[in-house]
Amino acid sequence: MNIFRLCGDMSHLAAIIILLLKMWKTRSVAGISGKSQILFATVFTARYLDLFTSFISIYNTCMKVFFIGTVYFTIYLIYMKFKATYDSNHDSFRVEFLIVPVGGLAFLVNHEFAPLEIIWTFSIYLESVAILPQLFMISKTGEAETITSHYLFALGSYRALYLCNWIYRYYAEGFFDLIAVVAGVVQTILYCDFFYLYITKVMKGKKISLPA
């Protein structure tokens, strides 16, 4: 463990907590893409299959349980508890256009042609594009609530911090995982446009409103 990865995990944790607080306090899921949350649930389920087979640390296990638990709770809030506030008209990204290519790529490009490894690779590739339905929804509604912007900033920062973690681990431990790094770079690049809006607007107390 290193400071970059710890900050990355804390940023990821913060994002999930911000999202849950937004939903619970406002009792509304307006502006939140249920499809992205379903993709994140798929990512965590696929990646944490080894939750019961390989023990790494108490921290690792607790975080995995927390991530899986909260993402399914988020889906429950969106599609059941606060269903009336879910904006399905604007959450119209065709996720099959993500899952099929990502699934195919996981079969073709992986570290080892073994079931668990391919599923892990699928989760890495899927995570890099899982935020697209959410960003697409914001571009369609033309705006994002400030709390949603904080959620996205924390979520985008987590993988950017992981890039720093991989640089550190390469020089400190000789650890290098090309698949995770390439997917992490793609994932972070997808947030760049949003990061720009966040820093130029939200940091100055304005709301994010895209030219619709």
Partner: peptide, 10 residues
């Protein structure tokens, strides 16, 4: 055979 990194990250 190629080293398969043990996935110790979240």
């Amino acid at each position: 055979d190629e080293f398969v990194p043990k996935h110790d990250e979240l």
